[in-house]
Amino acid sequence: MKKISLLLLLLATVLCFSCSKDDDKETPADYLVLGITSVTINGQPLSVTSGVMLDVNNVKNMTINSVENQITKKHISINYAILDNSVVTPTVSFTSIYPDVSIVVAEKTGDKTHSFTVTVTRKGYEEQLTYTFVFTKM
Rank of each mutant, 00 (worst) to 15 (best):
residue 67 V to N: 04
residue 85 N to G: 12
residue 52 V to W: 03
residue 93 S to E: 09
residue 75 H to K: 08
residue 53 M to G: 07
residue 110 G to V: 03
residue 36 I to P: 05
residue 114 H to L: 05
residue 53 M to R: 12
residue 69 N to Q: 11
residue 73 K to Q: 10
residue 62 M to D: 00
residue 89 T to E: 10
residue 45 P to I: 07
residue 81 A to S: 14
residue 100 D to W: 08
residue 92 V to D: 01
residue 51 G to W: 01
residue 109 T to C: 07
residue 39 V to W: 04
residue 84 D to V: 09
residue 78 I to M: 05
residue 93 S to I: 09
residue 99 P to Q: 09
residue 107 E to Y: 10
residue 80 Y to W: 06
residue 31 Y to Q: 01
residue 114 H to N: 03
residue 53 M to H: 11
residue 95 T to E: 07
residue 38 S to L: 08
residue 104 V to M: 10
residue 48 V to E: 00
residue 101 V to M: 00
residue 107 E to Q: 11
residue 115 S to H: 04
residue 84 D to Y: 13
residue 58 N to Y: 11
residue 88 V to C: 02
residue 37 T to D: 10
residue 67 V to H: 01
residue 72 T to Y: 14
residue 61 N to A: 06
residue 108 K to G: 10
residue 91 T to H: 07
residue 74 K to G: 02
residue 32 L to V: 13
residue 108 K to W: 14
residue 97 I to S: 12
residue 64 I to Y: 07
residue 84 D to T: 09
residue 72 T to I: 15
residue 40 T to D: 02
residue 111 D to V: 15
residue 98 Y to I: 01
residue 77 S to V: 12
residue 81 A to H: 15
residue 36 I to S: 00
residue 83 L to P: 06
residue 48 V to I: 03
residue 57 N to I: 15
residue 41 I to D: 00
residue 80 Y to V: 01
residue 101 V to Q: 02
residue 76 I to L: 01
residue 46 L to D: 01
residue 116 F to M: 09
residue 55 D to L: 03
residue 39 V to I: 08
residue 42 N to A: 04
residue 89 T to Y: 04
residue 92 V to E: 08
residue 90 P to V: 07
residue 82 I to V: 13
residue 96 S to D: 04
residue 99 P to Y: 11
residue 66 S to M: 03
residue 37 T to I: 13
residue 85 N to W: 14
residue 49 T to S: 14
residue 46 L to A: 06
residue 27 T to C: 04
residue 29 A to Q: 03
residue 41 I to T: 06
residue 112 K to D: 14
residue 76 I to F: 02
residue 102 S to T: 14
residue 103 I to A: 05
residue 55 D to A: 03
residue 72 T to W: 15
residue 74 K to R: 09
residue 50 S to V: 15
residue 109 T to L: 09
residue 40 T to F: 07
residue 39 V to S: 00
residue 90 P to A: 02
residue 51 G to I: 08
residue 31 Y to S: 01
residue 72 T to F: 14
residue 62 M to G: 00
residue 116 F to T: 10
residue 50 S to A: 12
residue 56 V to R: 05
residue 74 K to A: 01
residue 79 N to M: 11
residue 113 T to H: 07
residue 47 S to G: 08
residue 111 D to R: 14
residue 68 E to I: 15
residue 81 A to T: 13
residue 60 K to G: 02
residue 72 T to E: 11
residue 33 V to M: 02
residue 46 L to S: 02
residue 63 T to R: 13
residue 79 N to L: 11
residue 88 V to Q: 10
residue 102 S to D: 10
residue 94 F to D: 01
residue 46 L to Q: 03
residue 28 P to D: 06
residue 42 N to L: 05
residue 64 I to H: 06
residue 112 K to L: 12
residue 35 G to H: 04
residue 53 M to T: 12
residue 115 S to V: 10
residue 82 I to D: 04
residue 59 V to Y: 09
residue 88 V to G: 03
residue 115 S to R: 07
residue 67 V to W: 03
residue 38 S to D: 05
residue 107 E to C: 09
residue 60 K to W: 09
residue 110 G to Y: 07
residue 32 L to F: 14
residue 47 S to N: 12
residue 51 G to S: 00
residue 83 L to G: 13
residue 106 A to I: 15
residue 31 Y to P: 07
residue 71 I to R: 12
residue 94 F to A: 02
